[in-house]
Design a protein around this nucleic acid. Structure first.
Length: 630
DNA sequence: GTAGGGTTAG
């Protein structure tokens, strides 16, 4: 709306001066105005230009028509573009390209292909622009086969020597997961530009082990040797590779320094915002969310992406309270409306901090903004309601007719039932999923097997395990195997669990031995417990949790000498365990508790209540004696 | 004077 006022002065030309100016070159003026409509995605201005084009009799002007088609498409109305296109007598390849690209801009890829076929049938020959656009479509759809056909067409028509076409082909191969093909094309290019290098670097960042290594450093060096300076696109790809260790972290800081030193040389629109997002994300991933926050604070402009990156950074680092504060500030201070990703990010805090009330508020907001049909959001809601213990609400989201569920929706609800000991419901839902023709994946099988384990449904669990492997071709992963060990172990079948471990198709990991440890503790089998611990600590010599529970176990059996031994090893290796905590939300505020924690202001009465409850559970007092409970 | 290619939050 704000943008429109200066435009109106352009369009409603009333003064004699303006009228004569318009007469000099009305089509040039309109072209310029359409360019503005495109730059600002202004539907209003596009409409005004359109009516002027018609009234001035320019409807068959190919230059104006091309711009008009693009303008309607960037405003989100490709069908209007189609109407403009239909009204033209001579349909040049320029016009076809604009129309096809309009549908691509609106992610209506099927329509883009249909138009392409129509264009070929009408006898118009494709050109380099058509090919690069179709490459983009194949990449976005991950359609490798069609992508290969476009590659073939590019070779046959000779357009493969065009840099943009080859860059597009390379990008398509990367998005379809064929980085090798991309490299092959790159190697064969007679001439490259900076984008060619950026496509390869981005493809590498997306395909490899997501780490800085000699190969990627070589790419960046060679790019510079060939005379191209790394730009914002290059850095944004490289930032994705800055992961984990302190050594790699230096690359992140180095890139940040490079950006600061070259601040003025980034030429593309919104680059500051985009790179800010990448930096915040990089620092957050590397447990430096405070540095990310400094980047955030220094940014001159912030949009919903920047806020979301920062909120998500806090969520990933477990600083949930700060994430919620930012979510609030985004709306109140900057007046920015959350989008589906911001909602997703905040929803994941509701399983713990914001609680059911916060989750319901987000659900309500999503309904008002018509975002509730989104699969990811629906799945996040199912997960949130499950974690908050409200399986009925989770089920209602799941069963909603307008909700198009996917494999994750089924898995989330199945796991939710499992988490709350409702194994039979989980199994029932799993069977229904299969009946409806949905194939299980590893995650679904893990969910349903852990549900069986928690509810003691051993026979059901074994049936599901066997059918998943033999009928649905699921490979028994280490996660699936540890679920099975856990299930057998919990039900006291420790021998069977050990036999199963011996026959496992892969090396039993820590989760497998961990499951056996818990089960042997539960059933008081000292021999099995020592055996499982031996393997567990051999596999995970750096995990403090294993040592703490081993030490506790020795203490329980009064083996003080062994306790001292374990504690000594921990000290020597510098291992410390982060204590676990529980929490409860009352009246929108969340209270956290550690073991033997006395920090809470109501600590005394809480312990009093707890002692009372323990006595009640032991049966030494009866509810009437325990009046303060009511 | 028309149309195309590298990126961003889960």
């Amino acid at each position: 709306m704000i943008l429109l006022s200066p435009f109106k002065a352009f369009v409603f030309i009333t003064s004699p001066y303006h009228r004569s100016a318009a007469l000099i070159s009305p089509s040039r003026n309109l072209l310029h105005l359409l360019q503005l409509s495109i730059a600002h995605s202004s539907l209003d201005l596009t409409h005004q230009c359109h009516s002027r084009i018609l009234s001035l009799g320019f409807s068959q002007n190919p230059f104006l028509a091309t711009k008009l088609i693009t303008a309607y498409a960037v405003c989100g109305f490709p069908t209007e573009s189609q109407l403009v296109f239909n009204s033209l007598e001579h349909k040049s390849v320029h016009l076809w390209n604009s129309l096809i690209n309009g549908y691509v801009k609106n992610q209506t890829y099927g329509e883009a292909f249909r138009l392409f076929c129509q264009m070929c049938c009408s006898g118009v020959f494709l050109d380099d622009y058509t090919l690069s656009t179709l490459c983009k479509v194949c990449g976005e759809m991950g359609d490798l086969n069609t992508g290969k056909l476009i590659h073939g067409k590019s070779v046959a028509t000779g357009f493969v020597i065009d840099i943009v076409v080859t860059n597009s082909l390379m990008s398509m191969y990367c998005k379809c997961g064929e980085f090798r093909e991309c490299l092959k094309l790159f190697g064969e290019m007679p001439e490259r530009n900076a984008t060619s290098w950026n496509v390869v670097i981005a493809g590498y960042a997306d395909s490899g082990d997501r780490n800085f290594n000699k190969e990627i450093i070589r790419f960046v060096k060679d790019m510079q040797i060939e005379g191209f300076k790394p730009n914002g696109y290059t850095v944004s790809s490289l930032l994705l590779l800055c992961n984990d260790t302190t050594e790699k972290m230096d690359y992140g800081r180095e890139l940040h320094g490079f950006l600061v030193r070259n601040e003025l040389s980034w030429g593309f629109a919104g680059s500051d915002i985009h790179l800010g997002c990448c930096l915040i994300d990089m620092y957050s991933r590397n447990n430096k969310v405070d540095v990310g926050k400094r980047v955030f604070d220094l940014m001159k402009r912030r949009n919903v992406y920047v806020w979301t990156a920062m909120i998500n950074g806090y969520v990933q680092n477990g600083v949930l309270k700060e994430a919620l504060v930012l979510f609030y500030e985004m709306q109140v201070k900057d007046g920015i409306e959350p989008n589906r990703v911001s909602l997703l990010s905040v929803l994941s805090t509701c399983g713990s901090l914001a609680g059911l009330t916060g989750g319901k508020q987000i659900h309500g907001y999503a309904i008002r903004k018509k975002l509730n049909h989104d699969v990811s959001l629906g799945n996040a809601l199912i997960d949130m309601y499950s974690k908050c213990g409200n399986l009925n609400y989770a089920r209602r989201v799941f069963e909603d007719r307008s909700f198009c569920r996917d494999a994750i929706s089924w898995s989330s609800l199945i796991s939710g039932y499992g988490l709350h000991g409702m194994g039979e419901e989980a199994v029932c839902l799993y069977d229904r999923m299969l009946q409806k023709g949905n194939k299980p994946d590893t995650i679904t099988v893990v969910g349903v097997l852990s549900a069986c384990g928690r509810s003691g449904l051993v026979d059901e669990g074994l049936r599901i395990y066997n059918s998943a492997i033999s009928e649905y071709g699921i490979k028994p992963t280490v996660e699936i195997c540890s679920c099975l060990v856990d299930m057998l172990g919990r039900s006291g079948k420790l021998g069977l669990a050990l036999d199963f471990i011996k026959t496992m198709p892969m090396e039993p990991g820590p989760s497998v031995w961990g499951a056996l440890v818990s089960a042997s503790i539960q059933h008081g089998n000292l021999e099995m417990q020592d055996l499982a611990y031996k393997f567990l600590i051999r596999l995970e010599p750096e995990n403090p949790s294993n040592y703490v529970s081993l030490s506790n176990l020795h203490a329980f059996s009064r083996r003080w000498h062994d306790v001292a031994k374990v504690r000594k090893i921990m000290k020597e290796r510098g291992l410390r365990k982060t204590p676990g905590c529980s929490w409860i939300s009352i009246n929108n505020s969340t209270h956290c508790f550690y073991a033997a924690d006395k920090a809470h202001p109501c600590s005394n009465s809480i312990y009093e209540m707890l002692d009372g409850l323990i006595l009640l559970m032991k049966g030494t007092v009866h509810p009437p004696d325990f009046q303060f409970m009511t």
